[in-house]
């Protein structure tokens, strides 16, 4: 059979549908792994220095006190920092805990010293304390952002969000990665670990 222009034209819709289907399959697979978020907003702070923000107080009256967080803390970094914005009222924040405890907390003691810092977004001290106690969160610093102003400086649109900040001896600390939604193992392996390998 000789292929005419008509045949090629008839194949166009099928090709278009196949392309769309492939795209949807890609999005669906990566969405379930946490590596694709259709509502994610590209953070303009990416690749730039840490934004200035008013110092965040520590959570008061803790059995094992965890220091608060300030802008200056990011200038004297000696190790990469994973900064998590979370809240006790946020369910995905709870979802990421098992992964954080297993991988990030373990990572801190082995080859790549990665510090886990937290910003508690619009929460009450009692609820945040209760949540931390239940979750055994491995934060080494925790700032309370009661009015959510710090989150706005960072361009956070919701909880959880996370930022990877790498120290740099010459240019100062830089935000190199930003993620929305729960941290998953796939996300960590594909997007965060390559930066850590480069930093060592």
């Amino acid at each position: 059979m000789r292929l005419t222009r008509r045949h090629y034209l008839a194949a166009l819709p099928a090709l278009g549908a196949a392309g769309l289907g492939g795209g949807f399959l890609y999005m669906l697979r990566h969405a379930t792994q946490g590596t694709f978020d259709p509502k994610a907003v590209r953070n303009p702070r990416l690749g730039q220095a840490v934004p200035a923000f008013s110092p965040l107080p520590a959570l008061p009256e803790q059995p094992t006190p965890c220091p608060g967080l300030s802008w200056q803390d990011f200038h004297t970094l000696t190790q990469p920092v994973l900064l998590l914005i979370w809240a006790s009222w946020c369910l995905p924040c709870l979802e990421e805990i098992p992964f954080l405890r297993q991988h990030i907390a373990g990572e801190t003691t082995t080859a790549s010293p990665l510090a886990l810092w937290g910003v508690c977004y619009k929460d009450t001290p009692s609820q945040a304390a209760h949540w931390l106690e239940q979750a055994h969160h491995p934060f080494s610093r925790l700032g309370m952002d009661y009015d959510g102003q710090c989150a706005i400086e960072w361009g956070v649109t919701g909880v959880p969000e996370s930022f990877l900040i790498l120290p740099h001896p010459l240019t100062g600390s830089r935000i190199v990665w930003h993620g929305t939604g729960s941290l998953t193992e796939a996300l960590y392996r594909e997007q965060i670990q390559p930066f850590l390998r480069g930093a060592l």
Partner: peptide, 8 residues
């Protein structure tokens, strides 16, 4: 606003 949240 754009500096914090981008052109979006």
């Amino acid at each position: 606003m754009t500096q914090r949240y981008g052109e979006f």
